[in-house]
Write a protein that binds this DNA or RNA. Structure first.
Ligand SMILES: NC(=O)c1ccc[n+]([C@@H]2O[C@H](COP(=O)([O-])OP(=O)(O)OC[C@H]3O[C@@H](n4cnc5c(N)ncnc54)[C@H](O)[C@@H]3O)[C@@H](O)[C@H]2O)c1
Ligand SMILES: NC(=O)c1ccc[n+]([C@@H]2O[C@H](COP(=O)([O-])OP(=O)(O)OC[C@H]3O[C@@H](n4cnc5c(N)ncnc54)[C@H](O)[C@@H]3O)[C@@H](O)[C@H]2O)c1
Lengths: 205, 205
DNA sequence: ATTAAATTGTTAATTTATAAACAAAAAGAT
DNA sequence: ATCTTTTTGTTTATAAATTAACAATTTAAT
């Protein structure tokens, strides 16, 4: 549902950061293309569509492109996220150190199981009934659903009701949402099934 | 890289199982379409491409279509998976109960940190140097990478060398692989960044 | 028995995405 | 100063994916 070109822009950004950390100031479409596994034409087309300009014969100025991509992706802000479900996946995400340097911040976790709320934790945790209050107080727009399949739609409804506009869903169900609420699904088993399909097909050749 | 139609077939399967558990024997393209958020024409087109036939005016026989999709997805076999990296994500996956009923089985976990290998665990764990031996002995074709970014390509190379053909990668890097080894990336931050982009764009309207 | 309604499955049209082609500009070489 | 090479950026072409159209068939209704 989300356009492919913006997804690649997100990848280019990571790649540009990598090369910048390696000490480079400029980069060619060819290099970026190789890194993320597309054609150089694709890179130039994507850049063109987002008005990211380089220099003939001299490639792209990494800092310049990064500044503009950061603008596009609203990297001037820190994006607050709440998480519903503090089980296996929930705990793993809470412990994850990688959010900060992508300007993401898990501001609170929620569960209905009092045992899960007792654990000391890097972020404040509350009973799910507190979701509307916290979302309003912290002005949060993004939520992660990490509850069992059976509870996912209900959790989703609560998030929508509270004013969340983007949901990352780990539960293996398609959530029903109004048009102004966007869902991205992460399906570990689904991806593995797709891998089985393609690798078994390759085998036959 | 993996075709969209097969990814939807995987979704249809989950949906068919759901309706079967609800007691239904037949289903219409319209219902499936609504459930996974596509048009009925898309469902019929996908089914047509995989030779999944229904009955005019009577829809699709759930059991029949399931049997055929199960064939397509090689659901007659249990697919063995190994995992490299037993940190936050690795532990969450090991504890995950949902693999079994999708015919997936985590058969071993690997790490280089002896502390991680000491923990008692639902599956056997080994030092990473044992990867080739285990892959060969168990005849594993799928691997999950859940190591830090800096170690991901090395882990990937080890898996490839050992004979793994499909890799699910949680590290935020694009892995370099030969053409016969397929990678699926799971990028939590990337998905969140995409959500920020679309939800902020919606806001402007 | 005929007609109407519903639903599939295929074909055609449209849209979107990717790839190819190439002109324009810049840098460097002769 | 002129020519060659490199690389961008746009335009054109091709391919892939989605949507629309509609004939064919089945069921049910009159
Ligand atoms: N763990 C994994 O590796 C993994 C992999 C793929 C998919 N998933 C999916 O992610 C989701 C979470 O998986 P998990 O392994 O962390 O499960 P889990 O059972 O460990 O955790 C689920 C948590 O949600 C809480 N919960 C239940 N109902 C709730 C509600 N209505 N409101 C708030 N909290 C509620 C439970 O108390 C529990 O703490 C599941 O849908 C699962 O299918 C998990
Ligand atoms: N935890 C999350 O929620 C989360 C979210 C998004 C992405 N990721 C990505 O997933 C990966 C794992 O994240 P994590 O939070 O589980 O990290 P972690 O640090 O908790 O775990 C990484 C594990 O890998 C092991 N390891 C390091 N080098 C290794 C090697 N060469 N061979 C085998 N094992 C090795 C470490 O000993 C450690 O146990 C990272 O790349 C991270 O960026 C994690």
């Amino acid at each position: 549902m989300i356009k492919k070109n913006i997804q690649r822009i997100i990848q280019y950004r990571m790649c540009l950061l990598k090369f910048q950390n390696l000490g480079f100031e400029k980069i060619f479409s060819y290099t970026l293309a190789q890194e993320i596994g597309v054609s150089p034409e694709q890179v130039r087309k994507d850049f063109s569509q987002f008005h990211l300009r380089g220099n003939k014969k001299a490639g792209y100025l990494i800092q310049d492109i990064l500044d503009q991509i950061n603008d596009l992706l609203h990297k001037e802000d820190i994006h607050k996220i709440i998480m519903v479900g503090l089980g296996n996946i929930g705990q793993a995400l809470i412990k994850y150190k990688g959010f900060a340097n992508r300007n993401m911040q898990l501001v609170a976790g929620f569960d209905i199981d009092p045992a899960k709320l007792k654990k000391t934790c890097r972020i404040p945790t509350f009973h799910s009934k507190e979701i509307p209050a916290v979302v309003k107080k912290e002005n949060v727009r993004l939520g992660i659903i990490a509850v069992p399949e059976a509870a996912a739609q209900e959790a989703c409804n609560t998030l929508i009701e509270a004013g969340i506009k983007g949901i990352l869903n780990f539960a293996p169900v398609m959530l029903k949402t109004p048009p102004d609420v966007v869902v991205q699904n992460i399906s570990v088993c689904g991806e593995l099934e797709a891998l089985v399909y393609v690798t078994e097909k390759d085998k036959q050749k």
